[in-house]
Write a protein that binds this DNA or RNA. Structure first.
Lengths: 242, 242
DNA sequence: GCCGACAAGATTGTTGACAGTCTTTCAGGC
DNA sequence: GCCTGAAAGACTGTCAACAATCTTGTCGGC
């Protein structure tokens, strides 16, 4: 048959050093697909790469020390998660976060976290929440008054993780994770809005109290109201956030 | 320099016919990644391929007439969606649906569909639901009494799509879609459980009535209760379903 | 001086080939 | 006759070269 391609190899090439012990800083030793996906997900979530920025296949392949085909697979996963968009022959860009999209994410987040609060209240022993009854008291009050939003968020995150952990529902956990990875940035901008941290703290005290009392339904209702308020605040100050 | 690879091409080979007009039946003319993902998603959803069955890269590449690399990308997407599992050096298999997993999916589905019902009630003009007030009356009653579950499910699906359409929340729509693609099979097995169709019909009449009356909160509550009941039925007859 | 067409460079899309690992099969020994 | 071990086969994992497309920079014309 015609059109044959003949390939001659003169020598079995040396293997291109796998475990890059001498990896330069900034280029993590992430080689598997899951690792690279995680690395890029973190970068996008922390806005180390800005929305709309271009992601080059060659560039990333060189940085991680893997063939381009692997980066390509990673892009497929990231695209199916909605974190990037691929334009034919033009590469991949970080998805821009539309304002309307953020509201939709918050709407879903409200019902999912509400559900998790309810399930967590049912699944965990009541004493579990004593820790947070305490933290959301004087300590958090101090953070808010001092304007120490970083510490505020740390406690907030800790509570969030406890909720999800005790809800015992990996499906919901996965979905919430995919919401967080997109709204991470927005959350940090909402808490610094005037009065929001103070209000949110009060709302959370109510939520935690209901959980400590074992009132699952009420806790769910309060948590949903909490996120509804956050969304309203965002809507009111949207021009300052995005 | 040593280790060189020399490639000789004797003739620019003819392009390997792209638009396969003469594609044999069963091998759809799906070429793009999204198309193949959709095709496989449908097969898995309809259980044309059984859970636990192996998916061969070569086999699929040959069937769709695309290079293996593309199948590989498709697998990446399917894995990130949880539809398949990839075992190193052993290929990909269709994910098995654990019973516990089904309950978790139903738990999430309840709150998400509840939310959609609420939003749809707020967004759509009340007359929108007249159609379903009618359908869930005598027609559906006839289907249930005649044991015509196919027609029953068709109407059910139609209502579901209307809900999601009017909820105007693509994020929730996407998540619900990823739930349906996994529970499609189970749904068909639940409606044929003794008394379930009749009960579900009554519950839906209440939901639709609330929507027609513009009572969004009540509609949400009723819808969640409806899916809670479905889940309870499933739990009671679980040994007959899975 | 500005606009459009053309050429050079760079990047993505596609393909086939090579290498490693697991499974299967067959022969030999207990 | 059954079990163990090795070789063959088949498949996945990995990779680099080739082809097509878009972008950028430059030259000529109006």
């Amino acid at each position: 048959m015609s059109g044959r391609v003949v390939t001659l190899k003169t020598k079995p090439r040396a293997r291109p050093r796998r475990t890059g012990g001498g990896g330069r800083s900034g280029a993590p030793a992430a080689r598997t697909i899951a690792d690279i996906v995680e690395a890029l997900r973190t970068r996008i979530g922390r806005q180390d790469v800005a929305p709309g920025a271009k992601l080059g296949e060659q560039e990333l392949a060189a940085e991680f020390g893997v063939p381009r085909a692997r980066i390509r697979e990673v892009f497929g996963v990231l695209e199916s998660r909605g974190l990037i968009e691929r334009i034919p022959n033009r590469g991949a860009v970080v998805s821009r976060l539309e304002l309307e999209h953020v509201f939709q994410l918050y709407e879903v987040r409200a019902v999912l976290e509400g559900m998790c609060v309810r399930l967590a209240t049912q699944n965990a022993p009541p004493e579990t929440w004593d820790e947070f009854v305490h933290l959301f008291g004087a300590p958090m009050d101090g953070f808010v008054k001092a304007g120490d939003f970083d510490s505020f968020i740390v406690v907030y995150e800790r509570f969030r993780r406890a909720i999800i952990e005790w809800a015992r529902n990996p499906v919901a956990a996965r979905m919430l994770d995919s919401i967080y990875e997109k709204t991470n940035v927005v959350i940090r901008r909402i808490v610094i809005l005037p009065g929001r941290a103070q209000s949110g703290l009060g709302e959370h005290r109510a939520v935690v109290a209901a959980m400590r009392a074992g009132n699952a339904e009420e806790a769910e209702r309060l948590k949903r109201m909490n996120l509804q308020n956050a969304q309203d605040t965002l809507r009111r100050f949207q021009k300052y956030v995005l």
